[in-house]
Design a protein around this nucleic acid. Structure first.
Lengths: 346, 346
DNA sequence: CTGTTAGCGCCTTCAA
DNA sequence: TTGAAGGCGCTAACAG
């Protein structure tokens, strides 16, 4: 076991512990000969530095705490991966705390008190572990303001919003606008939208993008083309039926997530309308399964990796007292697959 | 900022730092009055313990290092979740190292040297951080022996095998045997299998289960019913065509992963054979998308969560010098959905 | 029941 | 170019 310390090295190399520290960290010039002697002993004794002691002395751990609301939810692994990429490049390590909210409280985030204790404990543990900063990864985009108090430690949120701190989000409004533009380019004018729950920020933002496109492109505006779903498959199915039974049905549907898009596909199939020949569909999230459906669906990819990377980058700046200008927002990107074509009779 | 230490508490409460430590940890009896006084000061000064200092002194961090070959691969998040569940219950924290192998080297693990350096560095960093143990999460079940050297630190592998250390794996052979039993119960006798690449341990194990079932249930054995795939969608498609064009085609196919099952479904559809009415299909992995396909496919769920939990449990035992009896192997579990029915004419 | 004190392994100021 | 020495914040003998 590695019970040897710089003291052992120093003794064996006939130098002081200070000198060992200097060659270890390159903190100061050391005569090449001395330096080599130390290096040899380090090699010989198979010395491994103790970062705990180092951290205690330096009052810095080069470790950041990542609080994930739930690592098993689709957005989180890729965000973590982004964090890791930045971390690898800058020698920053990660203590991961998984709140396991999906299993503990499900999807109902309305009552903050039901899970605040988990978040607060996580912060407290992380602070005790002396992390240099914290990243909080939400599982559902919402206002996270006031959930936790990190006592002045640098913190960056992602996949969520907050009033007082920095939060990295992608641009929902622009994304839905772009999806609309794509549809318009393909020749569509009668475009419906199936939203998620309306207490959700992305739902509202994406609806804004929809309105804006309807206005900019002078599309026929029909309130019946706007349907409120609940993010689940069944609502996609049910609302698509309503849409297709309209006297003047849409030729395309923009669906606010891929899960509901599965319902859209099913409804279309059962009603005998071909996708994409008679109905175009665009989803959101670029979930893995969206590529395995028939037809493979065209969908908006979320810049998860980039969000994680940026969150870490900004946190790093914060940790060094550097405050950068307002960070640019990572953008979604349309993944073209097989669920969109030009509308019939056109 | 939390610059106050037990020394400050001690001074303000007129006790020694030792006493503060005792009330903090309940290590020793303290007179209630003294105790309360200390507690009050702690409250008043909003004191937060410094685990780094504690760790240095105790030579123990209560932190374990998790090396994940790639957190974005489907198996990993759920394994981590299992690790977290055990960790939460026993106050064990986690430093996560993500090797990012999928992005760095793809799926080719044949040349170990291409990624050993990443693994070795990860171990080295973790050791410096003084973790009390390590869990290594593979991304593809294979022999991991000799990849890294942890210098005597407790280590447990999961989603992989190893000769010299403990590895937690699920039972591939039994799983495929059970899938076969299920098919036989439904009345099938002509059952084909599409394997993964044959350099893979699970492929061989699952094939064993298949043979065993063929023998036990006295099924007709036809070598043409055994097809070697490569884990990818296309091979599922291609091999299904071969199978269905046989003079005496199978009534059911056991596919070694859900991805290839997607190909099976596509081939069947294009050949006009109905699943499950004219062809039953069982997949492996219970990937998220398997529930979104048409039909929803019946598949073998991997006990990922349990693997993580068990790995952590055993590691914890190891850390305490407790060596438990051979750990039982977590078992797969069949998820019944809509891709299996009784064979036609039966 | 409580206090004193010697480190844990490392960095860094100060002095040589 | 090198060394001596004082902590970082905490725990655990040891002593009373």
């Amino acid at each position: 076991m590695s019970n040897i310390s710089i003291k052992d090295i120093a003794a064996r190399a006939n130098v002081s512990t200070a000198t060992v520290s200097y060659v270890l960290n390159g903190t100061r010039n050391v005569r090449p000969k001395t330096r080599q002697r130390v290096l040899d002993v380090i090699e010989e004794l198979n010395y491994k530095p103790n970062d705990i002691a180092k951290s205690l002395k330096r009052r810095r751990t080069d470790t950041i705490g990542v609080i994930a609301e739930d690592v098993t939810v689709f957005n989180t692994p890729e965000i973590i991966d982004g964090i890791n990429e930045y971390g690898d490049r800058h020698d920053l390590h990660i203590i991961l705390t998984n709140l396991r909210l999906d299993k503990r409280i499900g999807r109902d985030f309305s009552n903050t008190e039901k899970y605040r204790k988990y978040a607060v404990n996580a912060v407290s543990d992380l602070l005790s572990k002396q992390v240099d900063g914290i990243i909080y990864i939400g599982v559902h985009t919402r206002d996270l303001t006031g959930l936790i108090d990190v006592g002045g430690k640098p913190i960056v949120y992602t996949y969520g919003y907050t009033h007082n701190d920095i939060a990295i989000q992608y641009n929902d409004e622009k994304a839905s606008y772009e999806a609309m533009s794509y549809l318009v380019e393909k020749g569509h004018r009668k475009i419906a939208i199936i939203s998620g729950l309306m207490d959700s920020i992305p739902s509202r933002l994406r609806l804004n993008g929809y309105y804006k496109a309807v206005t900019d492109y002078e599309l026929p505006f029909d309130p019946q083309y706007i349907k409120m779903g609940d993010w689940e498959r069944e609502s996609g199915d049910r609302l698509t039926r309503e849409l297709l039974e309209l006297p003047d049905p849409p030729s395309a549907i923009l669906v606010m997530n891929d899960v509901m898009a599965v319902g859209v596909l099913r409804a279309a199939k059962e009603l005998g309308v071909q996708v994409p020949d008679n109905l175009s569909v665009i989803g959101f999230d670029n979930r893995e399964f969206s590529d395995y459906l028939t037809p493979r669906i065209t969908t908006m990819d979320l810049p998860l990796h980039e969000m994680g990377y940026k969150a870490m980058e900004i946190l790093h700046d914060l940790m060094q007292g550097r405050l950068r200008a307002r960070p640019e927002m990572p953008m979604c990107r349309l993944i073209e697959r097989d669920s969109v074509s030009s509308p019939p009779h056109n």
